[in-house]
Amino acid sequence: MKPMVKLPIVLALFASVATAGLAFVYHIANPIIQQNQIAEEADTLAQLYPSATFELYDDSPSAEYADYGVTSVYTAKNGTTIIAYLYRVSIKAYKGGEVRYLLSIDINGIYRGFKVLVMEDQTSGIGTIVAEPSFSARFLNQSIEDIGELDPTNLGNGVIVSGATRTTQPTLMSIQACGRHFQNEIEG
């Protein structure tokens, strides 16, 4: 057999055996990895609604929302009644650091809860302002329509402090994207 034919065939055979081995291990490991991720998600969701049960509502929001960092949406239920929708959001903020947070919107379209889970490389007192109560106080207990009309680049009133806009602006824009998702995909 010519080397030009033989060598690719031998390489393909080895690659096939390797693929079969990997498929077998993936078959064993993947369900456990998925279970671990679900357990981790449940822990974080329970931080906003400790007594609720959660169900995944949308695990791949469309680009219209995903571009703003919305990664998944859950329903929070008391028994069989939905009490709120929880948004898991991950944005790239100042210096490319991740800000990951949970946001809840109740069934009437009011922002009810906000909890920052991860904050990477943010300057204390500037980027970290998004985790402070003064930031969330500007939109909590307000309707998605009211917050949706705000201009994230020009909020004034100390919401966006000078130098913090690289973190506060994308955070607020993602909060508005969650509101739009609620309006279009849930109320819709």
């Binding site: 081995g21 990997l22 291990v25 993936y26 064993i28 490991a29 993947n30 456990i32 990895i33 671990n36």
Partner: peptide, 13 residues
């Protein structure tokens, strides 16, 4: 690479 990926998956799990 196959063995590394196997270890990677098992450690992840």
């Amino acid at each position: 690479a196959t063995f590394v990926k196997i270890i990677d998956l098992l450690m992840h799990a």
